[in-house]
Amino acid sequence: MNIFRFAGDMTHLISILVLLLKIYATKSCSGISLKTQELYALVFLTRYLDLFTDFISVYNTIMKLVFIASSLAVVCCMRMHRVVRRSYDKDLDTFRHYFLILASFVLALLVNEKFTFQEIFWAFSIYLEALAILPQLVLLQRSGNVDNLTGQYVFFLGAYRAFYILNWIYRYFTEQHFSRWIACVSGLVQTVLYADFFYYYFISWKNNAKMQLPA
């Protein structure tokens, strides 16, 4: 564990807490893409298949459980909760995310560290996570204005993978056999996808104005 990875995990945890805060405090999920939440639930379920077989550390196990439980809780809440579900922007959240699942799975079959069930699903979860934010970014683009908590949620969600890139650079230089190139390339793509969001987020922060995405 290094400071970059710990900062990344904490940033990721903060993004989840901000999302939960937004939904429970405002009893609304407007501006949140259910499709992105479903993709993230799938990412965690397919990435942590080794949850009960490979014990890494208490921290690792607890964080995996938190990520799986929180992503499923948000999906269930957005689908079932009678008050929250009414605020879901159903007609704006129309990204065909099944294509993202299919593309990630095909790529995982072609490019993986080892052609085993666990490794293919791990690579699938890595590729899918890079693309999972797309429905959310499209939804924000369409809805134009971004409320503070939603903006902070997406900001921290994007920032966490940037910390992981620093972590991979650090581990590359400090550990002999470290090669996590699938996660690294995918993590770079993931972070770049946030580039324009980060730009408009910074502009709104600098002008102390409400965040506006160009229609």
């Binding site: 990875r5 690792n60 995996k64 560290e113 490794e119 791990w122 056999h177 996660a183």
Partner: peptide, 10 residues
Amino acid sequence: SKDQVAKDEL
């Protein structure tokens, strides 16, 4: 196994 570096990251 050694060659399959355990996935120690989240």
